[in-house]
Write a protein that binds this DNA or RNA. Structure first.
Lengths: 336, 336
DNA sequence: GTTGGCACTCGCACAAACAGAGTGCCAGTC
DNA sequence: GACTGGCACTCTGTTTGTGCGAGTGCCAAC
């Protein structure tokens, strides 16, 4: 593809993103040193439109990028825009003094929303990549237990359990068994060992033990129920005009964890993925894009975080911010 | 105050709530059996406006209620509208099969949002009214502990703690002490007993113990950090027109836990409170109302739940729904 | 106290006219 | 062959003007 045509596309994308209005040939040459006349640009535009990278909302209006155009822009033209000094400083310091995992993720999502000026989403670290630290059994009432699972990333999972009857000694014994089987293991390992434990339990523990193990297995392998935090909702008001097409479907998606999870998708740490418009799996979200990245330690990916916004977003900046935050949080959580 | 004038006010409020348009004297007599002519109604309207209960957006438009008008309506005219059979059924069944506290509250907030068609908020049960069930200490790394507090309402509070060094035995001993001091006590009681414990710890536990007790005290008395769940955000799209005045400030409030807490205020169980327009503590939310109710057992109020929406909402229905849901959840949690 | 009538006031919807921005195409130039 | 200036054309958003309808306030009559 022609070099100048690419340059024109880049110019169109950046101008449209900043102005939100269709951009015409005249203003294009005025604002960018293309070294050619508007007429020439018009020819290039016609070609770009022919190939499906841009389109015009109506005859005799300027051009706006199509999803395909954005895609090309992101793939071939999008040098990540370096963060400002202030942003870098913010990212370096936003976690200092964080209390617990909840707090860390809350701060993360806020920061991400703030620097990108969009809606941010942070997934809780998934269990499968973390190591079981402790299993606790607590008696809530004569007929009710609470099983608690604590992992190396600080995540805590709880589940109630109905049980016919029990005494403290039995519970202590069971607790010891469960911990012996799981602590220090990753979730998949723990699952295997729990299954084995099930058949080797002393008779006195059979009743309660089986139920507890079943529940614990569920918890350990409950990847699907990945919790998440959302922030930056007020930024939605910046898209005032496109209420129906953008804001409404987005709010609906944000309400449904499952949808969100699917949207974020899976990404290994340090790799920023972009889903543009109809590339993403829900047709209601055709006019929104998702910029996501995995985060984690050098060896593991804990989970995913990202932002969601209108297709016409500032991809270079957003991608840079997402990557920077993901890296920092990953490192922070690995150390802790 | 004149009986008929009250009746006129009621008619104006209900009509305006359902149509969202200023209501005039003619349509008023057409839709309500007032038994008088439009001219008479006009006189009453003039009086009502004089007294500040209604106002007209511009000369020669119909009237709309003022906050004061809504207040009078709620106080003196608002017979709670009974729930539909479908709603009652929904409320009776929405909690069946709930897994844990998180799940219960999530379902609650969804239900509330659905039946009221507005944004719903549910506060987590506060610690002060619940009883400590268990305290757990988990070693996360050589220099790091995780303190976990479990209460009778199923709420779990966690906090990380930096510690110089420690071995398992010491921890076990400390755990025993902490549990002995707190289990079975309400938060305030536990706080007192923890303070006492602090001075009677064996020397071997002094170092770690002091730090742990300090942290635990914080957790036990951390009323302020009441967590909450929000749901029904998509309902915000129904106020499309009043973006700036209603939706934006609402989104901003929803992002800030502290603001939300203050908005919900405190209410004892089984008492529905309504804050209309500028009655609530944030001037940005002048055009929104909050309908809230405490929920809990017969003896205790656990926390508050409610909905937030535009001042022109259907108060009778909303209040009825909030009350019904609050009652049901309160009962459910008391039994569990 | 209530009612019918009437003059008056606005806001809003609709239409027509207009200005501006942008395009596509063509003929001329380097 | 690629680029440019010019020109006719198209379309939208805005402005301006007009008429309609809903609603009010007031007054005289019942």
């Amino acid at each position: 593809m022609d070099d100048r045509k690419l340059e024109v596309l880049r110019a169109i994308v950046t101008d449209f993103v900043s102005s939100q209005e269709p951009v015409g040939s005249r203003s294009l040459v005025e604002r960018h040193d293309l070294g050619v006349s508007p007429a020439t640009v018009r020819n290039d535009m016609a070609a770009l439109e022919e190939e499906g990278y841009i389109t015009q909302p109506h005859t005799s209006a300027g051009r706006i990028p199509t999803d395909k155009g954005y895609r090309l822009f992101v793939d071939r033209l999008g040098s990540l825009k370096p963060l400002s000094a202030a942003e870098q400083r913010a990212i370096q310091t936003f976690l200092s003094g964080a209390l617990d995992l909840d707090d860390i993720l809350l701060r993360t999502v806020r920061l991400l929303a703030q620097v990108t000026q969009q809606v941010a989403i942070v997934e809780y670290p998934t269990l499968s990549h973390s190591v079981v630290r402790h299993v606790e059994i607590v008696s809530m009432s004569p007929s009710r237990l609470l099983l608690i699972l604590i992992t190396s990333t600080g995540r805590i999972e709880q589940r109630a359990l109905e049980i016919p009857e029990h005494d403290e000694e039995t519970l202590a014994e069971l607790r010891a068994h469960l911990n012996a089987a799981t602590v220090g293991n990753t979730s998949p390992q723990a699952a295997v060992r729990l299954s084995k434990l099930s058949s080797t339990l002393p008779p006195s523990l059979q009743m309660i033990g089986q139920a507890a193990i079943a529940t614990l297995l569920e918890m350990v392998s409950s990847e699907a129920s990945g919790r998440m935090v959302v922030g930056g909702m007020p930024n939605l008001t910046r898209y005032g005009s496109e209420f129906e097409t953008t804001v409404k479907p987005m709010l609906e998606a944000l309400e449904e964890q499952v949808v969100l999870l699917k949207l974020l998708g899976e990404a290994s740490a340090d790799q920023v993925t972009v889903r543009i418009g109809q590339e993403n799996p829900y047709k209601e979200l055709q006019s929104t894009s998702v910029v996501a990245s995995g985060y984690g330690s050098q060896v593991d990916t804990f989970a995913t975080l990202g932002v969601i916004g209108p297709t016409r977003m500032d991809y270079p900046s957003t991608m840079a911010s997402v990557r920077a935050v993901a890296r920092y949080v990953g490192r922070f959580l690995s150390e802790g």
